[in-house]
Design a protein around this nucleic acid. Structure first.
Length: 893
RNA sequence: GGGCGGUUAGCUCAGCUGGUUAGAGCGCCUGCCUUACAAGCAGGAGGUCCACAGUUCGAGUCUGUGACCGCCCACCA
């Protein structure tokens, strides 16, 4: 490889090449060290496994960018760094996908049968399942691809079974008939979390239930779901509701079904609501279910699995639930039993997957008794074993954990981990076992495995240890468990993060390396569009990460996301910003070209020979000091997950200091002939190489490209990703150099400013006159080359006279400077500027004096603050005098 | 119904434990093709820090109230 870079920065060309190189060379594959091998700090990060059906979206890209930055940073710091990738089988989502495909072929899973269907799903996975991985590879995610897993892999499935069986043995898994959330379209139970609530403007219907023996009188109940009355088995009133005391013990006629049902008393009935009487439908409402248990009421299920009225619904059998509602209302009205209809806003639950309205349904399911697990999981965060960033999410977590309900883990699907329970066809015994039992206790061999599969989140909740080989005692588990960090979005805080904490703490309880799945959780925000709208297909504002990457380069997109990733704040992704970071990449590119161009010119020069023991020149001492200080800041920011601060710090260093000042300052030395130039180039190379390492986690591609070029094809390691990350180094920090440079920079800016104001031709050199202290005179004289070059100054004349009333002079606390130039200044404009300046200064001085005159301030404020304010006030006083003089010089204010 | 977050320049956002002159990018205005980069360089304008009250020597920063946005959770008909 030559050190020549093409004139134009073309991210596409270099990125594809390096992405392939990293994979081909297996640069990020991690060998598990044996027990005797040298110990290094271990950093383990689990990739939140994308769904096998998934396509990469901006949220993934943000997530992966953050993970990759952290991972590359740790790797460069010398940690044993594992980023473990995998894919989730995504039960419902995948099954839906394949079913849709089958439908288009005119068939269905029922027609194929379970076995054949599963074959189809595996086929589908083989063909379409790798989309996200391919995209991740293109984006350069530095995961260990050799360790990639799939949640349905044999060993992982075995671990899932093991966990299920253990929980069952411990009495933490039970099976029973309860009301669950049922999706009539997916035809499966779903957990509470998979129900999304949506506010709707609905109606509240008042229905009259005639009293037995007094059919002219009624008890009126209110309901939002009249169709469920077909399954009513009681009407409840509050025992203390005196309106109904005389009816206690009476029976009512359930209209339409013409069935007698009791009037019962139960505290659930709220006398304040409606008439105070509530219909009770134990098979179709969770509250009513509880009332039913308390009063031993019959449970009449009136709907089938698709939420159509079944034969228990008498004349309404066969109707869809909403058709039935219409007909029932119509029939009630006809009989004069509909007492009224009111508007009623409330929330309805929809299936997270398909948005079908969820039906509470009485059915037999498997559940996890969650309270013991939740208690433990709460303790883990309370005790600080797990730390959330932003810390606020801990509150959300506690809120949810403290109001948790048992988790329904069975799904009436085919794609997933089948429940390891076998039902004896003879005695109905249920055997939960690690593998299929030969025969039942009763001697029968007629055993059938449970038809249900497990909630996908059950298996993903186990990943922190199952992905490392548990329940075997593997070396991986030894070395890499527990994982160090989890980076994920808040959308799966409960689905995944909370469940992992519960399940892992339970199973790894007492593990020598700790029982928590990870010690740190970083929750990132949402990527929105430039107008802060949520990206959605229906709005058509979805930005495809691959499209945007092809347009601006991965490095620029990554940098955009990183620079905006301030914890807790959503990211309004705007292309203009990405465009800006492409310009930054271009800046890096051209700075490199500049360096290489000089390398060609200077014979005997080398870029990568390391820093000299001593730096003779101010600008060198300054840039080294700045670099090592910045390195410290970047490390600190990353340590706190302040991706934005880290990115902005390195950005302004590279552009605003290294390019804008240092490169300009070093140009004269580079263009000189001989050893001086070679020496300067070595310094430049050293700084540049360091800057590339500093930038590498954020922009892995362009830094890799230039870094290799700097070594002319013979780099010390195969990748910049494998060399050390820059750290703050005390020996290079130089406060004096930074202070001196600050004065010179201020001087340069002031002179440029004067030139612009006086409209001096760009190329014309101007002499300047200065008034300043002896120390600074020496500094400025020593560095007059800097002023000549950067401010186009021709000669500097020092004067002991104040320049304050010289027209067009600039005054600062440290110096006064004026151009020696015959061109007239714009008197009116200058007067305006000075006037504004004066007003501001006077204002500030007044404030400072007010404070300094306050005895309490002098008594209570820390000394350095008081000192600072005094100094400021003194400077301001001088500046005010000078500014007044300047105004007088111009002919008054 | 509960809980949480936000409001700082035209736009998108920083501002860490209260402390000297509130910052950046983009956009805008002016001047430059100064051979690394016009995807650039130099200079500039632009802010009642949502409102009110309070704590404090001192508030963008802490407390309270309100307004306006937004998010999450929820089995009361």
């Amino acid at each position: 490889m030559s050190h020549e870079l093409p004139k134009t920065y073309d991210p596409g060309a270099i990125e594809v090449r390096w992405a392939e190189y990293w994979i081909k060379e297996k640069l990020f594959a991690v060998k598990t060290p044996g027990p005797g091998e040298a110990k290094r700090p271990v950093f383990t990060l689990l990739l939140p496994p994308p769904n096998v059906t998934g396509r990469l979206h901006m949220g993934h890209m943000l997530n992966q960018t953050e993970m990759d930055i952290i991972i590359r940073w740790h790797r460069m710091r010398g940690d044993l760094t594992l980023w473990l990738p995998g894919t989730d089988h995504a039960g419902i989502a995948t099954q839906m996908m394949v079913e849709r495909q089958l439908a288009s072929e005119g068939t269905s899973r029922q027609k194929l049968g379970r076995e054949e269907f599963l074959k189809r799903v595996w086929d589908w996975k083989k063909h379409y399942g790798g989309a996200i991985q391919a995209q991740m590879k293109r984006l350069g995610a530095s995961v260990d691809w050799d360790r990639e897993y799939f949640t349905m892999d044999e060993n992982l499935s075995r671990a899932v079974t093991e966990c299920f069986v253990r929980l069952h043995e411990q009495g933490l898994i039970y099976r029973g008939m309860y009301i669950v959330n049922w999706c009539p379209r997916c035809m499966t139970a779903i957990s509470d979390l998979e129900v999304v609530h949506e506010d709707v403007a609905a109606k509240l219907y008042q229905v009259r239930y005639p009293i037995v023996g007094d059919p002219k009188n009624f008890v009126t109940v209110a309901t939002t779901r009249p169709e469920t009355m077909l399954g009513d088995t009681a009407v409840a009133v509050n025992p203390h509701d005196e309106r109904y005391t005389k009816l206690h013990g009476k029976k009512l006629i359930l209209p339409l079904m013409e069935r007698e049902i009791p009037l019962i008393t139960d505290d659930f009935a709220d006398p304040e609501f409606g008439s105070g009487a509530v219909k009770v439908t134990p098979a179709h409402d969770p509250n009513d279910f509880q009332i039913g248990l308390r009063h031993k009421l019959a449970q009449i299920n009136v709907m089938d699995e698709q939420a159509r009225i079944n034969q228990n619904g008498g004349p309404y059998a066969g109707l869809d639930r909403y058709e039935a509602r219409e007909k029932i209302l119509h029939d009630l009205e006809k009989r004069g039993l509909l007492a009224g209809i009111k508007d009623h806003a409330h929330a309805i639950g929809k299936c997270d997957r398909c948005k079908t309205i969820v039906e509470p349904r009485l059915s037999t399911q498997w559940f996890i008794k969650i309270q013991p697990l939740a208690d433990r999981a709460i303790a883990a965060v309370e005790k600080g074993e797990i730390v959330f960033t932003p810390e606020n999410y801990a509150k959300t977590y506690f809120e949810w954990m403290r109001n948790i309900h048992d988790w329904c883990i069975s799904r009436q699907l085919w794609w997933g981990h089948r429940i390891p329970a076998w039902h004896c066809q003879e005695c109905k015994e249920i055997i939960v076992a690690r593998s299929a039992p030969q025969k039942c206790k009763c001697g029968s061999a007629k055993l059938e495995q449970d038809q249900d599969v497990l909630d996908t989140w059950f298996s993903s909740g186990l990943l922190p240890f199952t992905s490392l080989g548990w329940p075997e005692k593997t070396p991986d588990l030894d070395v890499f468990y527990p994982t160090t960090l989890l980076i994920t979005g808040f959308d799966i805080l409960f689905f995944w993060v909370a469940r992992m904490i519960m399940l892992v703490c339970h199973f790894m309880d007492g593990h020598p390396q700790g029982s928590v799945p990870f010690t740190s959780v970083y929750i990132h925000a949402l990527v929105r569009d430039a107008d802060r709208q949520k990206m959605s297909k229906t709005k058509g504002n979805v930005i495809d990460p691959i499209d945007i990457t092809e347009k601006y380069g991965t490095d620029a997109v990554r940098f955009t996301l990183a620079s905006m990733a301030s914890p807790g704040t959503d990211i309004a992704f705007s292309e203009s910003r990405t465009d800006g970071y492409r310009a930054f990449a271009n800046k890096i590119w051209n700075a490199a070209r500049f360096m290489f161009m000089n390398l060609d010119r200077v014979s005997g020069a080398k870029l990568t020979q390391g820093a000299p023991a001593q730096l003779d020149r101010l600008e060198d001492r300054w840039i080294f000091s700045r670099f090592y200080r910045v390195a410290g800041e970047v490390n600190q920011a990353l340590d706190a997950y302040r991706f934005d601060e880290a990115a902005n710090t390195v950005y302004s260093f590279f552009w605003g200091e290294f390019c804008d000042w240092y490169l300009e300052l070093i140009k004269p030395r580079l263009s000189a002939e001989g050893p001086e130039a070679a020496k300067a180039l070595a310094l430049l190379g050293d700084m540049f190489e360091g800057a590339l390492r500093l930038l590498s986690p954020f922009m892995p591609f362009i830094t890799e490209e230039i870094w290799h070029a700097m070594y002319e094809g013979k780099p010390p390691r195969k990748s910049i990703a494998l060399v050390a990350y820059p750290q703050r180094e005390q020996k290079w920090l130089n406060d004096a150099a930074e202070e001196h440079m600050a004065v010179l920079q201020d001087l340069v800016v002031n002179i440029r400013n004067l030139r612009a104001e006086m409209k001096v031709e760009t190329k014309a050199k101007t002499p300047v006159r200065m008034h300043t202290s002896g120390d600074l005179q020496a500094l400025i004289s020593d560095n007059r080359g800097m002023l000549e070059r950067l401010a186009n100054v021709e000669a500097i004349e020092f004067t002991s006279q104040s320049l304050a009333n010289a027209p067009g002079a600039r005054t600062t606390p440290k110096f006064e400077v004026a151009l020696v130039y015959e061109r007239k200044i714009d008197v009116a404009a200058e007067k305006e500027r000075l006037g504004k300046e004066l007003a501001k200064l006077e204002n500030q001085l007044a404030g400072a004096q007010r404070q300094l005159g306050n005895e309490k301030f002098l008594a209570k404020a820390p000394a350095n603050v008081v000192e600072g304010l005094k100094k400021q006030a003194a400077e301001q006083e001088i500046l005010i005098q000078k500014t007044r003089k300047a105004l007088e010089g111009l002919g008054g204010a």
